[in-house]
Design a protein around this nucleic acid. Structure first.
Lengths: 211, 211
DNA sequence: CGAGCCGTTGAAACTAGTCAATTATTGTGG
DNA sequence: CCACAATAATTGACTAGTTTCAACGGCTCG
């Protein structure tokens, strides 16, 4: 096993992350937490694949509120946009390494692009179902279950995002996020190792809530 | 001008709708209000274009609640799904005429299909922003503005959907829908000719609310 | 070790939901 | 065509849940 990726920097900080082993050499750009990957209105260039770390996709509303439309984790690809310019912001939430996937010349839609778009659509639709739900308990439950599933289905969840991020993703305040997670703890369903590390003690009950 | 579409029936009722003039002869299937066009789990066959009428796309949640993910109006195309089977229900909300657009053989993605998918994704993302908003006043405002824009930008909105539909679309109850619209009326922003016909009196104020 | 940020918890205010009653609209049969 | 029934929409009173404002604890980083 050899490190096959060169590292380019894109931030003020510069830890040396280990790239996952790859068959082809691809440059990995590094992004520190809260570092902008692309901005709303910016020209859309390519797709991004997450080698390590996590990313939030969001839009700013006119009154300053922020709606996070998606979180992307290790191994996932994001950055597809219909228009020439990005309609959303993308930011790293933790130390993040990205490789880029260039668009086919002439703006042609290739299979990879369409695949990413379709996945994004499914995500958006699923997210819609969650945000449309009434109770914060359900929202948090769905959120945790989804995250656990995407992290190889382990019951020990590592949260790369802050409470604010979670709130802006689910459409609730950070206080409600915190209170709801505390409630799940009091119900014996989860255990908080620390604020960013949650263990699911009773997965079946959590799934019952998330339905 | 000649009627170029043959009519096939797909319901218990049978008014004779007028087809819009077309260059090619396409069969128009008729659907009475609340008539299912396709069901969740059903095999996905083709795309549908609305010749007249309106359609709701929704999913049923385990606890019996219903999340409407989209409304489709005259001239719009819907029915695209990633999987072989539909993940959503589609129902006519009023008397509706549809023409079908067959998928290319072999499940190949053609341009038309991709276009519809992309539009659906944008809609889903926009919808997300709306449902994620806090106040019902904003939600209703956005909903009305969007509907007005899609109905040729006229200030006289014809609502093909019930209050229940609106509620299930915005994630609020019918009582709140009703109260909020009444509030807009009391504020002098809209005028209700009847429950299904709303005139926007002060478009700028409505847009201000919808941001 | 202290400053500052993040997260948690508490109390009050408010928004939306629930339950219930009334009115309006639509459809049906005499 | 009218009366009645059934459904849809509105409005009111009350309750529950979320937000807001505020204080406090804990972790991280210089």
């Amino acid at each position: 096993m050899q490190t096959a990726a060169s590292i380019t920097q894109n931030s003020h900080l510069s830890p040396i992350p280990r790239a996952r082993s790859q068959t082809h050499i691809r440059p990995v750009t590094f992004h520190a937490p809260d570092c902008v990957i692309y901005a709303q209105g910016q020209r859309s260039r390519s797709l991004y694949q997450i080698e390590y770390g996590a990313v939030r996709i969001y839009r700013l509303l006119a009154d300053g509120r922020r709606q996070i439309v998606a979180f992307h984790l290790v191994g996932e690809t994001f950055g597809f946009e219909i228009n020439e310019t990005h309609g959303f912001y993308a930011e790293a939430m933790v130390n993040t390494g990205l490789t880029t996937v260039e668009r086919a010349a002439g703006g042609q839609l290739n299979d990879r692009l369409v695949g990413v778009a379709l996945k994004a659509m499914v995500r958006a639709q699923e997210h819609l179902l969650v945000v449309g739900r009434q109770s914060s308990l359900e929202k948090i439950a769905v959120f945790l279950v989804d995250l656990a599933d995407r992290q190889d289905g382990t019951d020990l969840i590592d949260l790369p995002m802050s409470r604010i991020d979670i709130g802006d993703y689910l459409g609730i305040t950070i206080e409600t996020v915190s209170r709801t997670i505390s409630k799940l703890r009091d119900m014996g369903i989860v255990k908080l190792h620390n604020a960013r590390s949650i263990e699911i003690i009773k997965p079946e009950k959590l799934r019952m809530l998330s339905n």
